[in-house]
């Protein structure tokens, strides 16, 4: 049947669902551009970007926005690792398996350096990715447990702003906490 013979109403009926399908596919493949503090642009699948509560609410406020989303508090290096984590998480969303998820999470943190973990925490916090934050907090806690003050300072990169007298006094006040600490 040629298209000219078609009834106009019928045509709209046919085209309507087909456009819907078209937008759906467009949406599932939709990419979002995110710009880090060091001006790198990441093209991320929408489903991954929606894992970031901060980005999600940005789009809820401005649904039609097609601009690049600036992430002024997020440097590129930890951000790429955060994306890696969220991509893994999405797999478990479709197919929940708690033991596999735990395994994948522990593998994720295992191969990260101390620096990686510490850098990702502010990013996970800023982007409000609760699962990641929980995983990171636990990993950090595991790594600093029973370590000396000096180790923890360098682990977090903390500047010691006490005078040596102040520090000595504090150690005295908390003497009970400094018994039996493992050496690094």
């Amino acid at each position: 049947m040629s298209s000219s013979a078609e009834n106009p109403t019928l045509t709209t009926e046919i085209t309507k669902p087909s456009t819907e399908i078209a937008t759906e596919t467009a949406q599932s493949a939709k990419k979002i551009n995110l710009k880090t503090s060091d001006d790198q642009i990441f093209e991320v699948e929408e489903s991954v970007a929606m894992e970031f509560a901060t980005v999600k609410s940005f789009f809820e406020d401005a649904p039609s926005s097609t601009d690049t989303v600036p992430l002024p508090n997020v440097p590129a290096k930890p951000f790429s690792q955060v994306i890696e984590f969220c991509k893994e998480q999405i797999k478990f969303k479709a197919n929940p398996d708690e033991t596999e998820k735990k395994k994948s999470n522990s593998e994720f943190v295992k191969e990260k350096t101390n620096e990686d973990l510490v850098e990702m925490i502010p990013v996970a916090n800023y982007l409000e990715i609760k699962d990641l934050l929980d995983v990171l907090n636990q990993a950090v806690a595991d790594r600093i447990q029973n370590r000396s003050v000096e180790y923890v300072r360098s682990f977090f990169g903390i500047d010691n702003d006490f005078t040596s007298e102040e520090e000595a006094l504090l150690r005295e006040e908390h003497a009970w906490a400094f018994e039996d600490v493992d050496e690094d």
């Binding site: 636990q138 595991d142 029973n146 923890v152 977090f156 006490f162 906490a177």
Partner: peptide
């Protein structure tokens, strides 16, 4: 997530 002793130790890290 840490035992109390470790938490108390962090008081010496910085202000």
């Amino acid at each position: 997530l840490l035992p109390l002793k470790s938490i108390a130790q962090t008081s010496v890290l910085s202000q």
